[in-house]
């Protein structure tokens, strides 16, 4: 069974159809990249997979391990193994990063019928992971994302992904706002998580990110449809030639 199967997905915002029949299959261990110009529905696709309100799904299915995600609330999808890395992670004043991380870990553990994580175990786990991601120790004591630089926010996202061990990670324009050093760190964090029982959907405008997170499959999306698919070399062609020929088509 594929890890993720999207079948003929149509979605509207108000009266406007944004996704016009997306089909995509991701198997365990695969990294798929979706590239496309702005305003083509890439972020809508990631939001629809994650279960954000405000989209009207008019047709199609999204199956994770054969289970229809569209019937689940956003939080239930997350606990089922969907992780959305946000393009713009929100700042939440007053909620410390560590308190948030612990709550998120415990939400997942409760789902799995496990007891809440022990305070010492939690600290040990987080300390080990932040070191690997080059995150400053004091970050977890600070309010979530408040005053974090663009790079710190994205590292925090990867830290959350690492701790929550999703089945499917959707990276929505993770490269936006990152300088080259931060991009490398974030990419290394993602690469460290690649495994046969995990799939990635990497959404990006630029090919730059895909130099570091090398995809198995690349899809071109314009006008709410996937108009071309290929291997990693497709990303390089796009970088050289742009999206014009797909948009004209």
């Amino acid at each position: 069974m594929p890890l993720l199967e999207i079948k003929n997905l149509h979605a509207k915002v108000g009266d406007k159809e944004i996704l016009k029949g997306i089909s995509l299959t991701i198997n365990g261990g695969e990294v798929h990249a979706i590239m496309g110009p702005n305003g083509t529905g890439k972020s809508t696709l990631s939001n629809v997979i994650a279960g954000r309100d405000g989209y009207d799904i008019t047709q199609g299915e999204v199956l994770l391990d054969g289970k229809n995600l569209l019937e689940l609330s956003a939080d239930a999808r997350a606990r089922a193994g969907v992780f959305l890395a946000f393009q713009y992670p929100v700042e939440i004043p007053g909620v410390s990063t560590s308190q948030f991380l612990k709550t998120a870990i415990n939400a997942k553990r409760r789902q799995q019928g496990k007891p809440e994580i022990d305070a010492m175990e939690f600290l040990k786990l987080v300390k080990a992971k932040i070191k690997a991601l080059g995150i400053a120790d004091d970050m977890i004591r600070r309010p979530l994302n408040v005053g974090f630089s663009g790079g710190e926010k994205k590292r925090a996202e990867i830290l959350q992904m690492t701790l929550l061990e999703p089945r499917l990670a959707v990276l929505d324009e993770t490269d936006s706002g990152l300088d080259i050093d931060a991009l490398k760190v974030v990419s290394e964090g993602v690469n460290a998580l690649r495994s046969p029982d995990r799939g990635f959907l990497v959404i990006t405008h630029y090919q730059r990110l895909l130099n570091y997170i090398v995809p198995d499959h690349v899809h071109v999306m314009t006008g709410g449809r996937i108009v071309a698919s290929g291997g990693k070399e497709l990303a390089e062609t796009l970088e050289a030639e742009g999206y014009a020929k797909y948009q004209a088509a």
């Binding site: 994650a50 279960g51 954000r52 309100d53 609330s73 956003a74 939080d75 997350a78 606990r79 969907v82 992780f83 959305l84 946000f86 992670p89 929100v90 939440i92 004043p93 007053g94 909620v95 308190q99 948030f100 709550t103 998120a104 939400a107 997942k108 789902q111 309010p143 959350q160 929550l164």
Partner: peptide, 23 residues
């Protein structure tokens, strides 16, 4: 939505945000 996307049910998410507001 951010907290939901991290697996927090609506009640837990609201509590966390309210505690954060008062912090």
């Amino acid at each position: 939505f951010f907290l939901a996307a991290r697996g927090l049910d609506p009640e837990t998410a609201r509590m966390l945000l309210v505690e954060g507001f008062l912090a």
